[in-house]
Nucleic acid binder design. Structure first.
Length: 437
RNA sequence: GCGAUCAUAGCUCAGUUGGUUAGAGCACCAGAUUGUGGAUCUGGGGGUCGCGGGUUCGAGUCCCGUUGGUCGCCCCA
């Protein structure tokens, strides 16, 4: 038991853990790139004010924050959204539209550990700035789906729940609720799935019990699971804004359908997401079995860039966290066991053979091949065993006999065949072997 | 912040009503094995039994505290 260990909630990434994480990052990056998103990064440490400005003073309890030696209040980033808003806001007028950015970064939150949640984790963040219409949501939801499908997950493994805070605002307004009551109702809706009727306790404390007819309408709206049902519920109200909103819904649903993604997306007005800053469509991805916490979440936040000091700039974004996602991949057997196999393992006879081998080893490595060899003199038999265990495809045998004849014995470790290759041809031979595949 | 539960080797775990010097499998290292394969056999390293205190002639075992892990509540950007 060593004296020092990781801080609570933090993780070491031993090579096999690192390989798994890298695999996840690699496919996320590939997916985002395929969608035309540009990658960015930013400091891990930001001004504490940035997060307070977005989320309120209470957020500090959830942050790793401190005062630096210059007296500045700072915090480790708990999320990317404020940072990316700051960055885009600063250059908004110079950036080509649409602004499509993504990042893969590590975040820190001072919270209790739980399944799929730690104090440090990574997220893919993808955002589109400058596009007010649902075309941006189409792109982002499609990217979200692709980021999961890239690993072999299918519609029986996960789905995206789609909702709309604007629809709720307009609907509740049409029902006669003022803004503060609307907020309280949305908070109740957010909790309703978990807490049932108790979700409305908070509302009742502030405003008294919700009138029965009103509550019935709200619960009915909450349980809507399709666009036609929304259209039906809204038509009766005859509100222009609601009708216009439905046009956006139609565009979004049709666009996702045309991409062949309908099977992944479910309309579900029970999702509102707790975050106050969302302004329109919101969506969350879950595993179908419902065993894990949310895999990903996102939505539109048209006011945030301006709120953080930038110009008015509409925005939509989502994030996928690595912890819950990796759990799902492992549950479904989709997390590959990655081995660090060299391409070539060298079996070396003695001191003069080693001198010869070193030249080839370095040339092969410079040529991009992964080459390993025993650092110290080891019996031949043991070297072959090591070569086989290493997972290398080829063994290069440097013995006194081969050295005398100016050749290297190249052994195909899978086929168990071998041939003598003149040393001058070695690199070409190895290259041919691997390009033939 | 609250609650439940757990903690013995790198990993998975045994460890009797409290009783000699704390064990096994896997993994790692070495030998058998001086030119050909993931085997086998033999040996080796590796433990303050999470930490601290208490009870006892004696504690891995019982009690209290504490730290950490796991899971849940609150929260979840």
């Amino acid at each position: 038991m060593s004296t020092f260990q990781t801080l609570p909630g933090f993780r070491d990434f031993y090579p096999e853990d690192f390989a798994r994480r890298h695999h996840v990052f690699r496919l996320w990056r590939q997916s985002a790139s395929a969608f035309g998103f540009s990658e960015y990064d930013a400091p891990v440490l930001e001004s504490l004010e940035l997060y307070k400005a977005k989320s309120g003073d209470e957020i500090e309890a959830q942050l790793f924050s401190f005062t630096d030696k210059g007296g500045r209040d700072v915090a480790l980033r708990p999320e990317m959204t404020p940072t990316v808003c700051r960055m885009v806001g600063a250059r908004a007028n110079a950036l080509k539209r649409p602004i499509r950015w993504f990042s893969i970064a590590e975040f820190y939150r001072y919270e209790r550990m739980q399944k799929g949640r730690g104090r440090c984790f990574s997220q893919l963040n993808a955002d589109i700035f400058g596009e007010p219409g649902p075309e941006a949501e189409i792109e982002l939801i499609a990217l979200l789906v692709q980021c999961l499908c890239a690993f072999g997950l299918r519609e029986e493994d996960f789905f995206v729940r789609l909702s709309d805070r604007n629809l709720w605002y307009y609907y509740l307004e049409a029902l006669g609720l003022d803004e503060s009551r609307t907020r309280a109702v949305l908070a109740a809706i957010d909790k309703y799935e978990k807490s049932g009727d108790a979700a409305f306790d908070g509302y009742a404390e502030k405003f008294g019990p919700l009138e029965a007819g009103l509550k019935e309408k709200i619960l009915g709206f909450l349980q809507i699971k399709s666009l036609p049902a929304i259209e039906h519920a809204v038509a009766a109200l005859g509100v222009d804004r609601l009708a216009a909103r439905l046009a956006d819904w139609r565009k979004l649903i049709d666009g996702l359908g045309a991409m062949g993604l309908s099977r992944f997306v479910e309309v579900d007005l029970g999702v509102v997401r707790g975050l106050a800053y969302y302004t329109g469509f919101v969506f969350e991805a879950f595993d179908r079995k419902g065993e894990l916490r949310a895999l990903a979440g996102g939505g539109r936040y048209d006011d945030l860039v301006a709120k953080l000091g930038g110009p008015a700039l509409p925005a939509v974004g989502f994030a996928i966290g690595d912890m819950t996602f990796s759990l799902l991949l492992e549950q479904r057997g989709l997390m590959p066991t990655l081995v660090f196999a060299p391409d070539v393992y060298c079996v070396i006879g003695g001191v003069p053979e080693r001198q010869a081998a070193f030249g080839d080893i370095h040339a092969l490595r410079a040529g991009g091949f992964r080459v390993d060899y025993p650092l110290k003199e080891v019996a031949f038999g043991k070297q072959f065993k090591t070569a086989a265990e290493s997972g290398a495809k080829l063994a290069l045998i440097y013995g006194s006999d081969e050295l005398a004849r100016g050749v290297v014995k190249v052994r195909d470790l899978e086929q168990r065949t071998e041939m003598d290759v003149p040393r001058a041809d070695l690199i070409a031979t190895v290259r041919d072997f691997f390009s033939a595949g």
